[in-house]
């Protein structure tokens, strides 16, 4: 397995008061298929995400996890089936795509910060240009979220001057500045050194505690156990198993899941 797996233990008590799954649907995927050329990378995906859900997606490398969550904000285009995000269907209509992208935040494995802009400019760019918020107000919002991810003092620096963990937290703050309704995470900690993973996970936990709808591709099983309300296991472009974390880890049904879990958890 190529991806590094850490079972970082979440130590602190999690505040579950606002972690409530509502009946409202945030993302609805039905019968979705995607090919890269001739390669059938996602097969018949059906997935309903409710507001307030914290979903962890795991599975072996190359199973299509990234592709799946990248379809949700149209970084990848699906060929058949339907994806509805916050009531808007993803079609080739550019207006809808930009609208959905501005409401869905995304954090990448390699952060994808803009190296030619300061941390503050990274955070204010999209609010100013996409949301048309006045610069002053955007800066206030940005400082608010930078404080939240605990790096307000770095606001004037450039991304290259920050550690990996700090950069990932900036990336989270940058997404939050758009006030997204859904957050997508694509292996946010797998490019980080172990000591930095915790600070990023802490930020993600705080986000969950505030009731954010989250879809996380991650192999942080500690995070999955304690924060997620649902774990999805993918293999060969398909959803093989999904369940509550307790059941998923203690009582996996499918053989593929069992094999995967035994490999990553080492028993």
């Amino acid at each position: 397995m190529a991806e590094s797996i850490h079972d970082t233990v979440v130590e602190r008590e999690i505040d579950r008061r606002k972690m409530r799954v509502s009946d409202e649907v945030a993302v609805q995927i039905t019968g979705m298929n995607k090919w890269f050329g001739m390669f059938h990378v996602l097969r018949d995906i059906d997935l309903t995400v409710h507001k307030g859900e914290r979903i962890v997606i795991c599975g072996p490398s190359g199973s299509g996890k990234s592709t799946l969550i990248r379809c949700i904000n149209r970084l990848e285009e699906h060929q058949t089936g339907q994806i509805i995000v916050e009531g808007t269907e993803l079609t080739s209509d550019l207006k809808n795509i930009d609208k959905i992208r501005s409401e869905v935040g995304m954090c990448f494995q390699h952060f994808n910060l803009f190296p030619h802009l300061t941390i503050l400019e990274n955070c204010t760019l999209a609010p100013i240009w996409v949301r048309k918020i006045p610069k002053r107000e955007a800066e206030e919002t940005a400082m608010h979220f930078l404080e939240k991810v605990k790096i307000p003092e770095q606001a004037e620096k450039y991304p290259g001057q920050l550690s990996g963990g700090q950069q990932q937290r900036v990336a989270i703050a940058r997404s939050l500045c758009m006030r997204p309704r859904i957050m997508l995470f694509d292996e946010p900690t797998s490019a980080l050194d172990p000591e930095m993973i915790k600070e990023v996970l802490d930020t993600m936990i705080e986000l969950a505690e505030e009731g954010m709808t989250m879809l996380c591709v991650t192999h942080e099983m500690g995070f999955a156990r304690q924060v997620a309300n649902r774990v999805i296991f993918m293999d060969d472009g398909q959803i093989v198993e999904q369940n509550e974390p307790e059941e998923f880890f203690n009582n996996p049904k499918s053989d593929r899941t069992k094999l995967f879990l035994s490999q990553i958890l080492g028993h």
């Binding site: 904000n73 149209r74 970084l75 930009d98 609208k99 992208r101 501005s102 409401e103 869905v104 935040g105 995304m106 990448f108 994808n112 910060l113 803009f114 760019l125 999209a126 240009w129 996409v130 940058r174 997404s175 758009m178």
Partner: peptide, 10 residues
Amino acid sequence: QYEGADSLGL
């Protein structure tokens, strides 16, 4: 860089 820009809705 393209993905970062796209994901923010630019």
